[in-house]
Design a protein around this nucleic acid. Structure first.
Lengths: 334, 334
DNA sequence: TTGAAAGCGCTACCAT
DNA sequence: ATGGTAGCGCTTTCAA
């Protein structure tokens, strides 16, 4: 919150235009909003006056009287991570079809920013969608009475809708794929554990168990390419016999791919790599990244659709099929 | 513009809360805004009533009376293009330091969307920054009286500030670099010409001329990896003796890199590739992309700073040093 | 075709 | 500590 204007000149209002054009406010309003009931000469005169004064209507005053502007707050941890970019892009597009505006907040993956954002956002938007690391109750305290849609949030919340990501089968297929290629020593690079292992890790260990192989070779990584690289080194140091890696996401996988190259391990011969997310980016890698792919477009679209539902009926919290399934998309890296 | 609420229930206002708590509006306002002059019991009662009713203050009413909310409209052609993502991310961050909100609009690189966006945006934000393909006069007709900062817009505009991108020296250095490596047949993949060749193309031909080599081998491409791939094929078909390529941007270069691989040309031995932008993404490629690199963070920051300047003095249009210089960042691909 | 009056929901400034 | 009144800038009745 900062002064909106450091300029000395007061804001030009409709009254100033009216005075300048020698008409009443309402006539100005008519001219500006293209109403019929106005003489075209008058209209032109008003328009000229408005232009001359540099008049622009206050969105607040207008919003107050015509209640027809919807603004969604989209909160993401890191716009530079292509996964979030893809989700954001699809949400923007879906919002546009409704004529909704989207205010984007990048919390830089920091909890404090997240709370600050929530604080600020809550008084500026009509609904919130996105990713949050804070607790349900913190979230609720800021968003009370406003539609909230979380994306990919694990753990059943009774208070917010979440677009679920179901990768169980996809991850199982990934492990099956690796096993079929003869891999038995499969490691995982999970994300840097906040409190507990990710659900993707759970899926991985379940799949490993189902195949009777060791699912315990896990290291954590930052959600960056560099993080993936370091983690791969760490993993290979701890478990030199690992021949395949499943990663928390594609960015990490891409970092692992690069690190493997640096270590002189060729992919997929010496080391197979499978990511998660199915980013478009993966197709540009050498070799192209095999991934448990998500329809990221769908995530954004579902989130916006759910906001629409919540708006028309706030009790629509528990919609059943808000799930995006991830499935194995085999490519060059495994 | 769509109805903001499909719900049957009317919006809860401060009056409803006041009535329910048995106090006046002003007291409700005090409770909600954490003012001192209120009994703590009363305050609690009001807060409870507000909660019970699911009350949330109207941002319009509030904005009308406390004029302290700044919202910037950020217009970009394609959020999925990492170049724009990087700029957007830095603009978001810079805006946050001012406490400003940023509404993001992705025009999907379509002129019609752009005008529609301008139309809609102009009544919803206090300033506009971004990329526009429309004419100055179209832009002006929508943004009259509002700060506008363009990024990387070529052509001197007397009406808007533009953050200039100066890549002349960088491109010259790139060509020099290639020539030093023995290349004499250097092609360029420009962006799909809208009306005329890009300024980057101009820089390229100038640099080629300075080295006495042919700067005329140019093809156009979509600003996508696929576009870059097709364009490379086209270029090599027309000019089979080309041994090096300079591209309009990194995305195109990355597509070219991949296509070269598919064509069995190894980079940089058989074909040298130099991009433009210096995206983080380039470092993940194999080989890592050589690029005429831009400080994309700086672009967003400068744009926001200029908005601040414009706000405090609308006549600050002609600031001199709003330039970001691009410089050659040598890496593996050339 | 135009204008006067009312009111959108909220906060600021004065009373009390 | 609380309430009354005014007013933010605009659009929407309703009269003229």
């Amino acid at each position: 919150m900062v002064s909106a204007s450091g300029s000395e000149s007061r804001k030009v209002t409709i009254n100033d235009v009216a005075k300048s054009a020698g008409v009443s406010r309402q006539t100005v309003s008519r001219a500006l909003n293209d109403k019929d009931e106005i003489d075209s000469d008058t209209k032109q005169r008003v328009l000229d006056a408005a232009r001359a004064l540099g008049y622009r209507p206050s969105r607040f005053a207008r919003g107050l009287v015509r209640q027809d502007t919807m603004t969604i707050g989209l909160v993401i941890p890191d716009l530079l991570n292509p996964y979030f970019t893809e989700v954001a892009a699809s949400a923007l597009e879906a919002a546009r079809t409704h004529g909704w505006h989207v205010v984007v907040y990048d919390t830089a993956d920091r909890a404090e920013e997240e709370l600050g954002t929530l604080q600020v956002i809550s008084s500026q938007v009509d609904a919130v969608i996105g990713y949050f690391s804070c607790s349900d109750s913190e979230l609720e305290s800021f968003t009370r009475g406003m539609p909230v849609v979380l994306i990919g949030r694990e753990g059943r919340s009774t208070r917010f809708t979440s677009i679920r990501i179901d990768g169980r089968e996809g991850v199982h297929a990934a492990v099956t794929h690796l096993v079929a290629k003869g891999h038995t020593r499969i490691g995982m690079i999970d994300h840097q554990a906040r409190a507990e292992p990710s659900i993707r890790h759970t899926w991985f260990t379940a799949a490993a168990a189902a195949h009777g192989i060791d699912g315990g070779m896990v290291v954590g990584a930052d959600q960056t390419a560099d993080g993936g690289g370091s983690a791969l080194r760490e993993l290979l140091t701890a478990h030199p016999d690992v021949t395949a890696v499943f990663t928390f996401n594609d960015i990490i996988a891409i970092g692992a791919l690069r690190e493997a190259r640096r270590l002189g391990r060729s992919v997929p011969q010496d080391l197979a790599v499978i990511g998660f997310d199915g980013l478009q980016l993966g197709a540009l890698m050498e070799p192209p990244l095999t991934s448990v792919a998500l329809d990221t477009r769908q995530l954004g679209v579902l989130a916006i659709e759910q906001v629409a539902r919540l708006l028309s009926d706030p009790r629509t919290l528990a919609v059943e099929d808000l799930v995006v399934h991830a499935e194995l998309r085999p490519s060059g890296s495994a």
